[in-house]
Design a binder for these strands. Structure first.
Lengths: 338, 338
DNA sequence: CACTGGCACTCCAGCAAGAGGAGTGCCAAA
DNA sequence: TTTGGCACTCCTCTTGCTGGAGTGCCAGTG
C-alpha cells in the first residue's frame, strides 16, 4: 500500500513542514529533495497518503500538512534519532557537573533541556516510591511534638510533624530511631510497611501508642509523598507556537500549571524507554496541538523518574529526541555519582 | 494646576480603560460618569492632562489612554483599596486552612492569589535570613560522612552533606549536636555566626577539625541558602494581556523564568508595606507593560517574605490590591499558628 | 471667566473587489 | 507507471473606499 517512495515523500513533507511551518506542495518537494520523480508523480503519492490519513490539506489548493497519524509513522519508522554534537555534549556535561545538590541538579537539567530544544522542558524529581531510605531521623520539638525527617538515597529530604500521645524521653526516642533505622535503611519505600509492621511488639505496653504514632506517620509520609514533584522551564518557548496565539497557547499554559496533568504527560509507567506522544495521543484537549517526548532516567538500569519536553506537533522530532535522550543519560550519571 | 474635576476625569479614564481595554473618548466619559459637564469641557481637561503627561493618545483622533504617570497618580491619590467580600474571605480562609505543611501553604497561596486576581501570582518562601532556628540535626551517613539538617521556625528544612576529616563516634556527634542546639535554637540566622564562633575551644584538640568542619558547613548553609525561593502560578492569565500577543507575552514569560528577576520584582527591602510598581518603574524592559503589586507577609510585625501579583499596567488596582493584602494577612495568620 | 454647542478635520477600522499565485486533480501520451 | 499539460480552486495580499469616533478650535452664553 505504501511503497518506499511514498514513505520518502511523507518524510520529506514532515521535514519541510517542520522547517518552514508552511503547507508544502508537490513542486517545492520535487525541487528541494531529489526524489527522482516529477511533481505530478508526487501529487499522485500525496493523494494516496491523504486518503490513508497521513497528511491533510488545510483547504483545497493548499499544500499538505502532516496529520498526527503522519507524524506517528514518521517517528516510528522514518526518523533516526539525531545524536548531539560533541560541543553540545561537552556543554551538557560541564553545565550539569557544577550542580551542588539534588534541587540544583533538577533545576539545571530542566533549564538545560529547555534551551537545548527550544521547547518547554519538564523534569520529575527522582521518585520516592522507587527510592531507598538512607536515614530516618526523629527529633523532639516539644515534649509531645515530634518531627520525622526522611532522607533518601537520591538526597531528597521529607519532613513531617506529629503530636505524640504522651511525653516521651530522649532514651525512648533514640531507641526507636535506632530500631527503625536498623530495619529500613537501604530498603525501598514499597517494602517498608512490611518491615516495620511488628516493630511495636518489641516495646513496653505503655510505649506502644507512641511507637504506633511514629510508624503511622512514617508510612503516611511514604504514601502521601508519592505525590511526585515536577519542575518546568522554557514556557517562553511556547510563543514560537504560531501566530494564532491566544487560542493555542492559553490551554497549554493552563495544562502546564496542573501538576497532575504534567505527571500524566510524562507517563506513569516505570518503563524507562523513550516515549513520543503526538497530538491527541496526549488525551487532553488543550494539548491536541502538542507533542511530548519523554524518557526515564536514573542511576541504575531502572528509571527513577522521567523527564521530557513538550512542543508543537510540528517539532523537530529527531533533534528533540536526541537531546532528551542525551540529557537523561547525563543526569543519570550525575545521580549515580552522588 | 489639576483641580478636582480634572482628577475626577483622570479617575474616570482609568476606570473605563481598565474595564473596556479601549481608548476612552470625551463623549463616552460624559455619558457613563455623571461629571455634570459637557464633553467639550472634558475635552479641555483632557488636553491639560495630556500636556502634563498623565494620559496619551495612541494616535490623533483616538480616545485617551492613561500613561504610567497617570496610573501612578491614580494609585497614589485616587484609588481606594477595595476590601474583599465576606464570601471571598471565607473562601480564602477555608482554602488555606487545609494546608498540611509549609510547601502546601505556599503552593495554595500562590494558586489562590492567581485565581482571585486573574493574574500571575508570585510568592516568596519565608526567608531564611529572617527566620529562627528550630533545630539542628547531625547524622552519620557513613563513618566519615555527616549530614546536617536545619529546621526553621517556619517549617522549612535544609540539608547539607559533608565529609568529616576523621571518623567520628556517636558520642562526639551527640555531644556536638547538643551543644550546637543549646546555643542556636530559637536564634535568628544572622546571629548564629557569633554564637558558635568559640564553640570549638570547648572540645579536645583532636576533635576540633571535625567540629570546625561541621560549624563551617552550618554557616555555609545559612549563607548560601539565603538564596530565596519563589513560586509562580497563573501564567495562563497572561493571555488576557491583549491581542498583539507574541511581542507582549514573550518577554514577560522570559522574565518570569528568572528567579532573580522575580525576587527583584517583589522588592528586596524588608519593608512590609504594600508596593505598587507600574510599567517602567519595574526597571526591566520586558516588563514595561506590566505592573506589580507586592506586600510583605509574616507571622509577626516584621515581614518574613513577600508575595504579590503581576499583571498588565491596565489592571484593576483597587481590586488587586485588596486581594493581595487580604491573602497576605491570612497567610501570616496561618504561619503564626503553626 | 468657565462652560457649552457647533463644526471642520483627522485618521483608524472594516469591508469589498480584484489581481496574483500556488497548488491541485485529471487526462492523455510516453 | 510516470509524465507534462491544462483548467480550476481558493487563499492571500493589496488597494480603495466609507463610516464613524474623536479631536481641536471658536464663538456664544450665563
Amino acid at each position: 500500500m505504501l511503497d518506499d517512495r511514498k514513505l520518502d515523500v511523507l518524510r520529506a513533507i514532515v521535514q519541510d513542514y517542520v522547517a518552514t511551518q508552511e503547507p508544502v506542495g508537490s513542486k517545492a518537494l520535487a525541487e528541494r529533495h531529489n526524489l527522482g520523480v516529477s511533481p505530478a508523480t508526487i501529487r499522485n503519492d500525496m493523494a494516496v497518503l491523504e486518503e490513508e490519513g497521513y497528511i491533510a490539506q488545510p483547504h483545497t489548493s493548499a499544500g499538505r500538512v502532516p496529520t498526527d497519524k503522519g507524524y506517528r509513522l514518521f517517528v516510528d519508522r522514518l526518523a533516526n534519532i539525531k545524536p548531539l554534537s560533541m560541543p553540545e555534549r561537552r556543554a551538557i556535561q560541564t553545565f550539569l557537573d557544577g550542580a551542588l545538590d539534588l534541587d540544583d541538579v533538577v533545576g539545571r537539567t530542566v533549564r538545560l533541556l529547555a534551551t537545548l530544544t527550544h521547547q518547554v522542558a519538564v523534569v520529575q524529581y527522582p521518585s520516592l516510591t522507587r527510592s531507598t531510605i538512607r536515614h530516618v531521623e526523629l527529633l523532639t520539638l516539644a515534649p509531645t511534638r515530634i518531627m520525622l525527617v526522611l532522607i533518601t538515597n537520591t538526597g531528597r529530604v521529607e519532613q513531617r510533624v506529629m503530636d505524640s500521645p504522651a511525653p516521651l524521653g530522649e532514651n525512648l526516642l533514640a531507641d526507636l530511631r535506632a530500631r527503625i533505622n536498623a530495619r529500613v535503611v537501604g530498603k525501598r519505600f514499597a517494602d517498608v510497611a512490611l518491615l516495620v509492621q511488628d516493630l511495636g511488639e518489641s516495646f513496653h505496653a505503655e510505649e506502644r501508642p507512641i511507637v504506633t504514632t511514629v510508624l503511622a506517620t512514617l508510612l503516611d509520609a511514604l504514601v502521601e509523598q508519592q505525590e511526585e514533584r515536577v519542575v518546568l522551564a522554557g514556557t517562553a518557548n511556547l510563543t514560537r507556537f504560531g501566530t494564532d496565539f491566544p487560542m493555542t497557547i492559553r490551554p497549554v499554559l493552563e495544562a502546564l500549571e496542573e501538576h497532575v496533568v504534567l505527571l500524566r504527560l510524562l507517563g506513569e509507567s516505570t518503563e524507562p524507554a523513550m516515549v513520543v506522544r503526538i497530538g491527541h495521543e496526549n488525551m487532553h484537549e488543550g494539548l491536541a496541538a502538542t507533542s511530548v517526548v519523554s524518557v526515564g532516567y536514573g542511576s541504575g538500569d531502572e528509571a527513577l523518574a522521567k523527564l521530557g519536553v513538550l512542543g508543537p506537533t510540528r517539532m523537530d522530532y529527531p533533534g528533540t529526541m536526541g537531546a532528551v535522550r542525551a540529557v537523561a543519560r547525563y543526569v543519570g550519571q550525575i545521580l549515580a555519582e552522588s
